[in-house]
């Protein structure tokens, strides 16, 4: 699993509101760093990493909900939830297909046709999920969601993403 990015400037004596901004923006940037790889679709681990990051982001938003006006917060959380759910549907299928594929080796010839048939049904569904992911990101792009979200976080926490410079973990 991809390691979470370090949250720059987060100290043990941080103020709740400021910590909210730093953590949420870091998780947001972390998640979006996997967007190109997810859309390319060449490596299923890119989507996995993006989904894990989106869950971290969602958890951070839940944790710091009190730092934001409730109505606006619900709207942004709904969008983040949509990202998590869309990625989750595709990821669940990736995991299931890989699991069935791994089982094939040990199955008897009688059992194989059923598992192969099930896999092809899931693969067809997975292709549909790819189009869902592409249209979701296209919509977020058209709506300028990224800029809106970052500005909204800055407005309520005083943390600007440009000052934060969230950094990916160092490579070993």
């Amino acid at each position: 699993m991809a390691q979470p990015w370090t949250v720059n400037g987060l100290t043990p004596d941080a103020v709740f509101r400021s910590a909210a901004g730093r953590i949420i923006l870091t998780r947001w940037r972390e998640m979006m760093s996997y967007q190109d790889g997810t859309l390319a679709g060449a490596d299923i681990e890119e989507l996995h990493a993006m989904r894990v990051s989106s869950r971290r982001l969602r958890a951070a938003m839940d944790a710091f909900a009190d730092a934001f006006p409730p109505r606006e917060f619900r709207r942004y959380l709904r969008e983040v939830k949509r990202i998590t759910d869309t990625l989750g549907d595709a990821r669940d299928l990736d995991v299931t297909i890989a699991h069935l594929d791994a089982l094939l080796v040990d199955l008897t010839p009688i059992d194989r046709p059923g598992v192969i048939g099930l896999m092809s049904r899931y693969q067809a569904r997975r292709e549909i999920e790819t189009t869902h992911i592409a249209s979701l990101f296209a919509q977020l792009e058209n709506d300028g969601f990224s800029t809106q979200f970052e500005k909204w976080i800055a407005k309520h926490t005083g943390v600007k993403v440009t000052k934060l410079r969230p950094a990916p973990p160092e490579m070993p």
Binding site: A14, V15, F16, R17, A20
Partner: peptide, 14 residues
């Protein structure tokens, strides 16, 4: 729901 969160106070007590 968690009552009594004070966003302007430190992270730890919240």
């Amino acid at each position: 729901p968690v009552r009594g969160i004070q966003p302007s106070r430190r992270l730890r007590p919240n």
